[in-house]
């Protein structure tokens, strides 16, 4: 009985951990690739702000 409960918990935790990791990483990448800093700080002129998304375009996206 205890073994069963324990193993269920372990498997569930494992899955949750993996899913959390996946979502976390994807969101982190989104932020890096996206245009976060431009939106937050409108004084930031777009093409020259640090974020990858704007580094090239004349206008923001």
């Amino acid at each position: 009985m205890i073994v069963m409960i324990l193993s269920n918990i372990v498997v569930a935790l494992l899955i949750i951990l993996m899913l959390w990791y996946a979502v976390h990483t994807i969101r982190k990448q989104r932020k890096e690739d996206g245009c976060g800093s431009c939106k937050k700080n409108s004084a930031h002129s777009c093409p020259s702000s640090g974020c990858k998304g704007c580094s090239y375009s004349n206008k923001c996206h």
Partner: peptide, 9 residues
Amino acid sequence: GTIILLSSV
């Protein structure tokens, strides 16, 4: 480990 894992689940 990210996109494929998530979409598989």
